Simulated assay, not measured.
Amino acid sequence: MDEIVLKGMPFFGYHGVLPEENAIGQRFVVNVWLACELSEAGRTDDVSKTVDYARVYAIVREVVEGLPKKLIEAVAEDVARQLLTTFARLQSVTVEVEKPGAPIPGIFGQVSVKIRRDRA
C-alpha cells in the first residue's frame, strides 16, 4: 500500500486532564500517514485520483484546535475517524499526536500517542 505523509503539523489546543491545560492551552504536533492506492494518480497525473492534502490539514486542524478533550488518545481517535469518513480512498490511517509540554516532572523531549485505524 502506498502512503501520503503529513508530518510536523503544529497547532494550539486546550486538551489535557489538568484544569490549567484546558485554561491556558498548549502546542500539539500531529503526524499522519495515509495508506491508499496511488498508482492511478501517478500514471494519470490527476489530482482527483489522490487525497487532497489541504483538506487533510484542515480536518486535523479543526480537531486539534476544536473542542477540548482530556486525552491525546481521544484527539488521535477523532482525527482518524474523520479522515476515514471523509476520504473513501483511504484504506488505513495512522495518527500521531505529540504533546511536547506534557505536565510531567522531569526532562523529556515529548510525549506522543500513535494509533492506526483501518477502514474495515
Results as ranks from 00 to 15, higher is better:
D45N: 12
V29F: 06
V30D: 00
V51E: 08
W33S: 13
S48R: 13
V60G: 01
E62K: 14
R55Q: 15
D52Q: 04
S39P: 02
D52F: 08
L34A: 09
R27M: 06
V47R: 12
N31T: 11
R61Y: 05
A41L: 07
Y57E: 10
R61W: 06
V56H: 04
V60M: 11
L38S: 10
V30P: 00
E40K: 13
D52Y: 09
T50D: 10
A41M: 08
V29I: 15
V32H: 02
A35D: 13
S39I: 08
V47Q: 12
A54W: 01
S48V: 09
S48G: 05
V60F: 06
D45R: 08
E37Y: 09
R43S: 13
A35E: 15
E40Q: 14
W33G: 10
L38V: 12
Y57T: 11
T44I: 05
K49A: 12
W33M: 09
A41Q: 09
L38T: 13
E62C: 00
V47A: 14
L34S: 10
F28I: 02
R27C: 02
L38G: 11
I59M: 01
A58C: 02
D45T: 08
R61F: 07
L34P: 06
V60C: 12
V32F: 07
V47G: 01
A58Y: 01
V32T: 11
D45S: 10
I59K: 00
I59P: 00
T50M: 07
G42K: 10
V60K: 00
R55N: 12
D52I: 00
A35H: 15
T44P: 01
E37Q: 13
V60W: 01
S39E: 13
R61N: 06
